[in-house]
């Protein structure tokens, strides 16, 4: 299948950060989350996709057309929910809807109304008068119904309470059921968002560490507990150890070594995603 979005050798120098080189391909039917610590370049990556930040090197294609250049027809195929909505403060939800809906040929008014109702969003108040949580919900109600091929969400669960997060996940799942689409989100380690993703793009200070398929990440990280002290030398696959606990990022090699040395483990467990990402970003 043709990718929805493609990054080829993208590089961008900012004041304090050198992003890239990044190669990335977003396939239809997938949910990808960009994870990394604060300032790793997650939001910049989304802005590059929107051509709001211009790359120094490389190309970005959306549905086979370049996002730079004079023809901006590609914009109707992509929706972007930034962390901060600029210029919305004076407007009510109603007038924002009237402004945004006509720009998108596939605008889904039914979905818009359902989100407004589910989140109890007052459409007659100006944006600035809403709480941060409600602002976030309104941003979502004005983004999902655009029904574009690609949906970019920057920290979509910020300021949201637990029931609202759950509703958001359900709306996203439903949105994905409609065929030829993909979502790219940025999040600094929201567990909910990572759980919903197929791929995790891990960024560290602008560098792409890797793109992981989620289950591969879980299957390749295991922790072991032992009754006895471990040998002093580094065990193959060893990522981290503490007294009689060992974390490995290559269980096959670790277990072969342990068998060979007659060391039995008393317990074995997978790590959860947050633990794995923390290890990757800090070790």
């Amino acid at each position: 299948m043709k990718p929805i979005m493609e990054f080829t050798n993208i590089e961008k120098r900012l004041d304090s950060l050198h992003i890239g080189p990044i190669n990335l391909s977003v396939e239809p039917g997938t949910i990808t989350t960009i994870v990394g610590t604060n300032g790793a370049g997650k939001s910049t990556l989304l802005k590059l996709m929107m051509n709001l930040v211009k790359p120094d090197q490389g190309n970005i294609k959306l549905l086979n057309s370049f996002v730079h250049g004079p023809d901006e027809n590609w914009k109707k195929n992509i929706s972007y929910q930034p962390q901060t909505a600029v210029g919305w403060n004076a407007f009510t939800g109603k007038s924002l809807r009237d402004f945004i809906a006509p720009l998108y040929p596939n605008w889904d008014e039914v979905l818009f109304k359902r989100i407004v109702e589910a989140f109890n969003i007052p459409l007659n108040k100006s944006f600035v008068a809403l709480s941060q949580g409600i602002q976030q919900k309104l941003k979502l109600a004005l983004t999902l119904p655009r029904n574009t091929s690609l949906l970019l969400l920057d920290e979509p669960t910020a300021y949201m309470d637990i029931p609202a997060k759950e509703q958001l996940m359900n709306f996203i799942v439903e949105w994905m059921e409609h065929g030829h689409r993909a979502i790219v989100m940025a999040s600094h380690q929201s567990a909910d968002i990572m759980k919903l993703s197929d791929y995790l793009v891990v960024l560290k200070q602008g560098k792409l560490i890797d793109i992981f398929e989620k289950e591969t990440l879980i299957d390749t990280h295991k922790q072991y507990w032992f009754n006895e002290a471990l040998p002093v030398e580094k065990v193959p696959g060893e990522l981290f150890r503490k007294a009689t606990q060992l974390i490995s990022n290559n269980p096959e090699r670790t277990e072969a070594y342990l068998h060979q040395h007659g060391i039995a483990w008393t317990a074995l467990e997978s790590l959860n995603l947050e633990e794995i990402i923390t290890l990757i970003l800090t070790k």
Partner: peptide
């Protein structure tokens, strides 16, 4: 359940 719905329930990727 659809592939996407089950992947949400089980917190796995749709690929799995």
């Amino acid at each position: 359940p659809s592939i996407r719905a089950l992947s949400k329930d089980l917190e796995t990727s749709a690929i799995t």
